[in-house]
């Protein structure tokens, strides 16, 4: 007997967001990246279109990061040079795009001025041709000064700038509108706040197709399932026609995973856990793989090998399965 698959029909799809702008479009990027647009739950190609594959980004910091020593062989030589670091991420490690984290702006780190931060961003833009994601230092007050300055200095580049939350969304949104960038709207694992922030931002007249949501995730073993279920709800909402939940999703995977004990504990202290280097890579890749299934569109990774594994996973998942023949 012929098998016929039960198919879910959805009335709507995820918004698409274009990251980066080429010379013709008013920026300086070699190419742009489009994310979103899915008309089905993740990778269910037989139920709807999945027009754009999820993309992976690698982290670059503007100050020397206090990262685990096992990452030093990959980035240690460029820790001091964000531009070279970014280049390495793209050329050597095949990152789709680069995330520049302006940690140095943090008053408790280097308290870099908005102008200095803008300069680092411009240096990185000059070094690579891929679209760029810029994250603030995490101090809302400082970010609301730094990010608008960055937005102004890079006007027209269609950066993805974040993270805007309920406290500081106004200044960041205004800067993104004026200087033609995209924004990351961050919410604390809360579907309502996620949606509310999207409403607030769109009501300031930033179009919905320039918002990417960061629903906040956790590493495997640290509450991943909470973030997962929120993402799933957002996706289902989007497919059922909720425009204010229909933004592509970004997940800060590396940052979360590298805070976990499992990524950092030495093999000597935990011999039963196996080799730390492999373990951390797998921990990061596994977390990312789960988030892909939840509906992530952009994954921010830290370890190049984890990135490679996830890229391979994405390639495999993007091969359409069809029950129609």
């Amino acid at each position: 007997m012929a098998f016929s698959a039960m198919k879910e029909k959805y009335s709507s799809q995820v918004h698409t967001v274009v990251l980066g702008a080429t010379k013709e479009e008013g920026g300086t990027r070699d190419y742009t990246i489009t994310v979103g647009g899915e008309g089905a739950l993740p990778f269910l190609h037989f139920e709807g279109e999945v027009p754009h594959r999820p993309v992976v980004a690698l982290e670059v910091w503007d100050v020397v990061p206090e990262w685990h020593e096992s990452l030093a062989p990959y980035f240690g030589d460029v820790y001091n040079d964000p531009a070279a670091w970014a280049k390495k991420c793209v050329m050597e490690y095949n990152a789709d795009l680069v995330v520049l984290r302006l940690k140095g702006a943090d008053p408790d780190v280097a308290d870099a001025s908005p102008e200095d931060c803008a300069k680092v961003v411009k240096d990185v833009l000059a070094a690579v041709g891929c679209p760029l994601i810029v994250l603030g230092c995490g101090n809302p007050e400082k970010d609301s000064k730094v990010l608008p300055a960055v937005a102004e200095a890079t006007s027209g580049e269609k950066l993805l700038i974040g993270v805007a939350d309920q406290e500081n969304y106004k200044s960041i949104t205004a800067a993104c509108i004026v200087h033609n960038h995209n924004i990351i709207a961050g919410s604390p694992i809360d579907i309502n706040i996620c949606k509310q922030l999207n409403i607030l931002i769109t009501e300031m007249n930033l179009p919905a197709d320039r918002i990417v949501i960061d629903p906040t995730t956790a590493a495997l073993g640290y509450g991943l399932e909470y973030g997962y279920s929120i993402m799933e709800r957002a996706r289902i909402g989007a497919l059922q026609g909720d425009k204010m939940l229909a933004m592509p999703i970004i997940c800060n995977v590396g940052h979360e995973v590298w805070r976990s004990k499992e990524a950092n504990a030495s093999s000597e202290d935990y011999p039963a856990w196996g080799d730390q280097a492999n373990r951390s890579i797998l921990w990061e890749a596994t977390t990312a793989a789960a988030l892909l299934q939840a509906g992530a569109n952009i994954l921010i990774m830290r370890h190049p090998k984890a990135l490679a594994l996830v890229k391979q996973n994405i390639e495999e998942l993007m091969v359409p399965t069809s029950f129609d023949d």
């Binding site: 809360d190 309502n192 949606k195 509310q196 409403i199 909720d242």
Partner: peptide
Amino acid sequence: MSALFLPHTD
């Protein structure tokens, strides 16, 4: 939770 908005999240 979704009503904690003016007028409503939806």
